[in-house]
Write a protein that binds this DNA or RNA. Sequence first.
DNA 1: GACACGATTGGCT
DNA 2: GCCAATCGTGTCC
Length: 188
Amino acid sequence: MVLHRDFFQRDTVLVAKDLLGKKLIRKINNKKCTGIIIETEAYRASDDPASHARIRKTKRNRMMFEEVGHAYVYFTYGMYHCLNVVARNKKFNAGAVLVRGVYPQLGLDMMSKLRNNTKIQNLTNGPGKLTQALDITLQDNGNDLTKYSSLYIANGIKIKKIHKKTRIGISRGTDKKWNFSIDPHDYF
DNA sequence: GACACGATTGGCT
DNA sequence: GCCAATCGTGTCC
């Protein structure tokens, strides 16, 4: 079952936690590739110095200000894409959750090919890796993830324990513990 | 118009 | 653990 829009109409930090265990579904040439979300990070608005949306709306970050439940994909380091889900409550004008890792379930052969035959353990355990494995690019920016299409999010598994720490790869906003993850060992 | 740098990764020491 | 690869974007002059 695909997630409802209301799910994303809540505080970005809360949505980041609740996305753990949900299923990310990608259809490539009519073939289904799926993974369970195991790591996320919240990026909010003017209150968050690490967020792309900390200053104002720009060409790149504009999706963070648009309707919740849509994808915000950006290109970084000259070679990688990162997948975010737009989420915020009414208190903020922007916000998104970065999907940093999924546990691969279906379509391992397809993902492996797209990742140049990297072994399973390193297939989708990073923001740049999972977009490569699922062929997610700027073409997917703005995609409605609450509708059945070539990219959407559905209910997944029940979560036991959530790990919480500071976000990865940022130089500002290091006081906020907005990185959330689950241990795949506990479920798979 | 120029330029510094990044919500990363893989390879090498 | 360290560092190069690689280029679009945002900020500043």
